[in-house]
Amino acid sequence: MSETVESTDVVIVGAGPVGLFAVFELGMLKIRAHVVDSLDVIGGQCQALYPEKPIYDIPGYPRIQAGELVRRLEEQAEPFQPRYHLGQRVEKLTPREGGRWLVETSAGTRIECAGVVIAAGVGAFGPNRPPLAGIEAYEGRGPGVGVHYMVGRREDFRGKRVVIAGGGDSALDWTLSLAEFAEKVYVVHRRNKFRAAPESVSRMRALAEAPESGVELVIPYQLHGLEGRDGNLDAVIVSTLDGETRRLQADALLPFFGLSMNLGPIAEWGLRLERDLITVDPATCATSTAGIYAIGDIATYPNKLKLILCGFSEAAMAAHDIFSRVYPDEVLHWEYSTTKGVPG
């Protein structure tokens, strides 16, 4: 572990959209921020899981791709020169004199600060891998082939034969999206009822009824095995509960069985929790521990809505409450951004 201790005003845990907007809100109050994230890139799930997925409820953007939203937020935060510590997670928070905190990461980074903002989304996450023998050999084989648990670029699947397994929103979202690119899309689900949004289900069924779309529903089947050689996938074997099997020629398998999520070290920080979420004061987003705040999906309070735009609002509220910790001898004079502008 490094003996060097860096110093800043606030450490933000999580570089997703809400964490990035917190950099901006803090910066507008002349509060410096460092950002720590376990992923190697900024953007959280928006960048890691569905960068090309459209989002429709960002004010001012009737439609914007998740990856583009991340790029815009990064640009918005850039004038405040945040320090990013990527590929490492916060392991430990230790109180210091004067109400300050020492943040220590898995990479040995040590940062002293006046406040901590937890914007960690759902916490640590990873895909639920289907229990198929030898599946590891087909993972990470390259764009558009083998087994993938997320889609980076739809273009990678152009002309490919793709098997999508699952019945939730992710499975149907990518069915609808990849139907424009793939030669064939098989949707494998164990029953005819889907858990996804009704509009998505209707659109998928309409595609399946149009032979030229290349979308085929394989129901009621579930994943049974994989066929290939030297890590190159040739086919996905599916079966019914009665043991009837079917062989689907495929270049890629996309299993969408949800994410395994846990708070990781956050659960050990002594914060008041409710169903693995951090309870906060809805007026300030302050947690049960002075100097620590939580915003975005990881925060909870009565009537909480898990929307990115709500996380943006929480970032602003937390920033204004933190101001007095960073500048205890100053009075915060409210100004609109249109009045004071943004530093050049």
Rank of each mutant, 00 (worst) to 15 (best):
G140C: 10
P79N: 10
G108K: 12
R153N: 14
K53Y: 08
S106H: 05
C113K: 03
A77F: 04
Y138F: 15
G99E: 07
R100N: 02
R32A: 15
H34K: 04
E155P: 02
K92V: 08
A66P: 04
G142F: 06
T94K: 15
E68F: 04
L49T: 01
E91K: 04
V151M: 07
G115C: 05
G126C: 10
P131Q: 05
P127E: 04
V90R: 13
P82G: 11
P127K: 01
V35P: 06
E91V: 02
V116F: 02
G108C: 13
R100G: 04
V116G: 03
I55N: 04
H148G: 00
A120K: 08
Y138A: 02
L49Y: 06
G67W: 12
I111L: 12
V35K: 07
I58P: 07
R154V: 01
Q81E: 14
I58E: 09
V117N: 10
R141P: 01
L69K: 03
A107S: 13
Y138G: 04
G140E: 07
P95L: 12
Y138D: 01
P51C: 13
L73E: 02
Q45E: 05
L102G: 00
I135M: 11
R153F: 11
A119F: 06
L39S: 09
I111W: 07
A33H: 07
Q45A: 07
Q76C: 09
V147I: 15
G134D: 05
P79Q: 09
I64M: 05
V151Y: 02
I111R: 10
H85E: 13
A48S: 09
Q88F: 10
K92Q: 14
G146L: 06
E136Q: 15
R63W: 05
E97V: 06
V147K: 12
L73C: 06
A133V: 06
V151F: 04
R110C: 06
L132N: 02
Y149Q: 01
P131R: 07
G67V: 14
E52N: 11
G152Y: 00
A33W: 05
E74N: 13
A114S: 12
P54R: 14
G134F: 06
D40E: 13
Y56Q: 11
R72I: 11
G126Y: 13
G142L: 09
I64K: 09
P131L: 01
R63G: 02
P143K: 14
Y84Q: 14
V36R: 03
R32D: 15
A77W: 03
A137Q: 11
T109H: 09
R89F: 02
P95C: 11
S38N: 11
W101K: 00
R110A: 05
L93C: 05
E78N: 12
A48E: 08
G121K: 00
I135L: 14
H34W: 12
E155H: 08
L49D: 01
V122I: 13
A33S: 15
D37R: 09
Y149A: 02
G146A: 09
G152W: 00
V145E: 05
G126M: 12
L73Y: 09
E68L: 09
